[in-house]
């Protein structure tokens, strides 16, 4: 994920320049670099420990809107996984659901407001469907990422109601939301992580 944020740093910042303040890429990159360092130092036991460490890094290093939102998401996901070692498809779906709940609560956002939620909510639905249909963990993530990509693309047509882009009102229409896009990129990076 850190590599993905490194790779897409300028792209995300570019998206943020159009309707925000041109720092989303830098913010995410800084956060995931910090997470990487924390993980390299810590050698965590369980997936939940990894998520918790990432959450702490994001909360304490990112700032802006993305820091507390993604930080909360990773923390909540860690919460539902408890001490589990190997994660099942259902575990993954539940973790994504908890993450979404955390973000919605913290950000007081709903679908259709041109935020992270617009990528994560469809991702959660797709993950749940894949898990319920007996898909593998890899399939769960892959369908979540695919749905997030579509969700992020769908933000182009939306008018922002939350976050910095909301100040633009109708002028926010026609641009893809940086946060929704970074959500897709993170899920996509997770898929690649499993594959590679």
């Amino acid at each position: 994920m850190a590599a993905a944020m490194e790779e897409h740093r300028r792209y995300l910042t570019q998206l943020d320049a159009a309707i925000g303040d041109a720092d989303h890429g830098t913010n995410m990159h800084r956060g995931f670099q910090a997470a990487l360092e924390r993980l390299n130092g810590a050698d965590p036991d369980t997936p939940a420990d990894v998520l918790k460490a990432v959450s702490m890094a994001l909360i304490s290093k990112v700032g802006g809107a993305a820091g507390p939102l993604y930080g909360t998401a990773f923390l909540r996901a860690a919460g539902v996984l408890g001490g589990k070692g190997e994660l099942s498809a259902a575990d993954l779906a539940a973790a994504l659901e908890a993450a979404l709940e955390g973000i919605k609560q913290r950000g007081r956002a709903e679908e259709g407001q041109k935020t992270i939620v617009d990528a994560l909510a469809p991702a959660v639905r797709a993950a749940r469907e894949a898990a319920d249909g007996g898909g593998s963990p890899e399939e769960v993530l892959r369908s979540a990422a695919e749905a997030a990509r579509k969700g992020a693309e769908a933000t182009v047509e939306m008018e922002a109601k939350k976050g910095r882009a909301s100040y633009l009102g109708k002028r926010s229409i026609g641009h893809q939301d940086p946060g929704a896009t970074s959500t897709y990129l993170l899920l996509d990076a997770a898929v690649r992580g499993l594959e590679g």
Binding site: D21, D23, N27, I59, V62, G63, G64, G67
Partner: peptide
């Protein structure tokens, strides 16, 4: 003080 144009963190 946060980074330029970026809110500081809770820490």
């Amino acid at each position: 003080a946060g980074a330029v144009f970026t809110s500081p963190t809770p820490d």
